[in-house]
């Protein structure tokens, strides 16, 4: 039996204690910094938010009034981009996980969607401008902006769909096949219902992502000021992130519009965090349900 001298043992413990404390301190300082950022903005912005701020049009060169058109614009963009991206993304996820055979094609599709996830958002903006705005002639419009945002959200939805389908135990599939169900029927009646809550998580995360993006909508949809809410898919729209960008950097009276900028930032943060929280809730709620079964 070899035993370390006490000296070494103590040294070892001391090292460990120091290292652990450093890790602990760093972790908490990171959290602290992130919270300080949130707090800094919330403190200045939360007081601005009231019913009028949410439901009024901007007035007086956007230094007073509300941000209704930006909220509605973001809502339209999120809705439209999800209408496009969600079905396509889910079907693609089903293809990758259920239909594609292992091998070159599956590898190719996976590689492509992975790479799509890594494309910087400004590149999506460039592409959207070249294809939707100019080539297809949509002009800067909700349609062009939503299509661009849909592409951005696509890999996220594909990946969550794929992961949630993968999580469905194969015994379910085999049982369904044994009962004589076809592959499509099995997917529709057995696999999808089980995977559905997780797929929805992807949708919610996609909404969070899409509502906060500025670069892709810069040249495809964003408007500085609209007198009315957008009326059709071919109208331009205001949007929360772009609104925050313009009122914090342009406009002739920056100081006067600062409160609006902070208020807009708070709304944006609340939407994005709210969506993430919702996704977490759906995920944990569902996993608990499965355990109970």
């Amino acid at each position: 039996m070899i035993s370390f001298p006490k000296q070494v043992d103590r040294e070892k413990r001391l090292h460990q204690a120091i290292a652990f404390w450093i890790a602990r301190i760093i972790s908490y300082s990171i959290l602290l910094i992130l919270f300080l950022i949130l707090f800094f903005i919330l403190k200045r912005g939360i007081g601005v938010i009231n019913w009028e701020f949410l439901t009024a049009m901007p007035i007086d060169g956007m230094t007073k009034g509300g941000i209704l058109p930006a909220i509605v614009g973001t809502l339209y963009l999120v809705l439209m981009s999800m209408i496009i991206a969600f079905p396509v993304g889910v079907l693609s996820g089903i293809y990758v996980n259920e239909y594609a055979k292992e091998g070159a094609i599956k590898q190719f599709v996976k590689m492509m969607t992975n790479n799509l996830a890594g494309v910087p958002s400004i590149v999506f903006g460039l592409f959207g401008m070249a294809l939707f705005v100019n080539r297809l002639g949509f002009g800067a419009s909700i349609l062009a902006g939503s299509l661009t945002l849909a592409l951005l959200a696509l890999p996220l939805i594909i990946r969550t769909t794929e992961e949630s389908l993968k999580a469905v135990d194969d015994t379910f599939r085999h049982a369904s096949y044994a009962l004589g169900a076809s592959k499509l029927r099995t997917i529709r009646k057995v696999v999808l219902p089980i995977a559905f809550p997780n797929i929805i998580t992807g949708l919610i995360l996609g909404i969070g992502r899409v509502s906060g993006e500025t670069a892709p909508i810069l040249f495809t949809v964003a408007a500085y000021f609209l007198p009315k809410l957008p009326q059709s898919l071919f109208d331009q729209a205001m949007a929360l992130p772009y609104h925050l960008y313009v009122i914090s950097t342009s406009g002739t009276n920056i100081q006067a519009s600062r409160p609006i900028a902070y208020g807009t930032a708070v709304i944006l943060i609340l939407i994005v965090l709210g969506m993430n929280l919702l996704a977490n809730f759906v995920r944990s709620h569902y996993s608990r349900k499965v355990k109970m079964k």
């Binding site: 002009g139 800067a140 040249f219 408007a223 500085y224 000021f225 609209l226 007198p227 009315k228 109208d235 331009q236 313009v246 342009s250």
Partner: peptide, 15 residues
């Protein structure tokens, strides 16, 4: 109803 859109002089002239 009047819509006002920024983007820069180049954007405006192209449009």
């Amino acid at each position: 109803s009047i819509t006002v859109v920024g983007g820069g002089s180049g954007t405006g002239l192209t449009a």
